[in-house]
Every structure is written in structure tokens, then in C-alpha cells.
């Protein structure tokens, strides 16, 4: 039974997970806030709108990690159409933006999925070890007999 659990810790998955963690660690971990704009132009207001729509769409795609992010984003954008405040911005999402959003969402979906697999494997490994505790008394007796 334990062997089955060990097989679930596929080296490739663990390796992929570690690679993602390493990538996160290598990225800029701290950024300085240089300023907050009080007055913004119409152009900045327009770009802010599309950035917020993309961010809202992305959030749902990551939440449903495990399903196709492309489908999640498509569904989400349709749902957002019902919100008056966002309607003006939806038409700004071009196919290129859409592709970028889907790719980013897919990356995070993989990240979370690998994290879950890694945690599950760790837990199963701990359970396996705890179920077969080392009997130190036996070891001492065995050592004594060999002397």
C-alpha cells in the first residue's frame, strides 16, 4: 500500500514544483512603491479599466485551477457583461490580451495544482513513516548481540 503512495510522488511532478518555486524565488521579491497618482488622464482611466477586468477574469481562472483557464475566462467575461460599470471596458480586450490572460492563468493553475500534489505527497510520506516507527529498543538489543 505504501508503495502506491510513494509512486504518487512522481519525480517529474516534484521537479516541476520545485522549478516553479525556484522561479518565484528568482523573480523580484520586493518592489518599492514610488508614488500614488491622485489625478489620472482619460487614457490612464481607460487602461485601468481593462487592467481591472483582466484581473477579475484572471482571479476566477486561478480559483478554478484544474479546468481549462481559457474556458474559465470566457465564461467570466460573459458574466461580467451584466455589470454596468464594466461594460465599457470589455470591448477593449483584444485577442492578444485574451491569449496572455489565458497563458498566465494556466501558469498559476499549474503552480497550485503542483503545490497540492506536493503537499499530499508530503503528508502521505509522513503517514507512512509514522506508521512504521523505528523501534530503538530492538536496535540496541541487536547491536548488543553482535558484540
Amino acid at each position: 500500500m505504501e508503495e502506491v503512495h510513494v509512486k504518487e510522488v512522481e519525480p517529474k511532478e516534484v521537479k516541476d514544483y520545485l522549478r516553479l518555486i525556484a522561479a518565484q524565488n528568482e523573480s523580484t521579491r520586493r518592489i518599492r512603491i514610488e508614488g500614488i497618482k491622485d489625478a489620472i488622464t482619460d487614457e490612464q482611466r481607460r487602461r485601468r479599466g481593462s487592467a481591472i477586468v483582466a484581473a477579475i477574469s484572471f482571479a476566477v481562472a486561478t480559483h478554478f485551477s484544474g479546468i481549462n483557464p481559457d474556458v474559465a475566462i470566457q465564461t467570466e467575461i460573459q458574466a461580467l457583461n451584466s455589470f454596468e460599470a464594466l461594460k465599457d471596458y470589455l470591448s477593449m480586450i483584444t485577442p492578444a490580451m485574451y491569449a496572455t490572460m489565458a497563458a498566465t492563468a494556466a501558469s498559476f493553475s499549474n503552480f497550485i495544482r503542483h503545490n497540492r500534489a506536493f503537499r499530499r505527497a508530503n503528508k502521505e510520506f509522513d503517514n507512512m513513516v509514522n506508521n512504521e516507527p523505528v523501534n530503538l529498543q530492538d536496535l540496541v538489543e541487536k547491536q548488543a548481540k553482535t558484540m
Binding site: I21, Q24, N25, A51, A59, M97, F111
Partner: peptide, 30 residues
């Protein structure tokens, strides 16, 4: 949760530390 207004798809998930934003790199926290 920050979104780059000049590059769609560039998102930042972080937490405040004084005047800095520390990016989340712990998967559980993220």
C-alpha cells in the same frame, strides 16, 4: 492584488511591508 495598466496579464500578488510590496512566493500563502 495589482494589475499592470500597460501590460495586460502582468499581475502582482504581494503584501505591504512599509513602502515596499513583498511578492508572495510561499505557495500556501499565495
Amino acid at each position: 492584488y495589482l494589475s499592470n495598466i500597460n501590460e495586460i496579464g502582468d499581475f502582482i500578488f504581494g503584501k505591504l511591508d512599509g513602502e515596499d510590496i513583498v511578492l508572495l512566493n510561499d505557495p500556501d500563502e499565495l
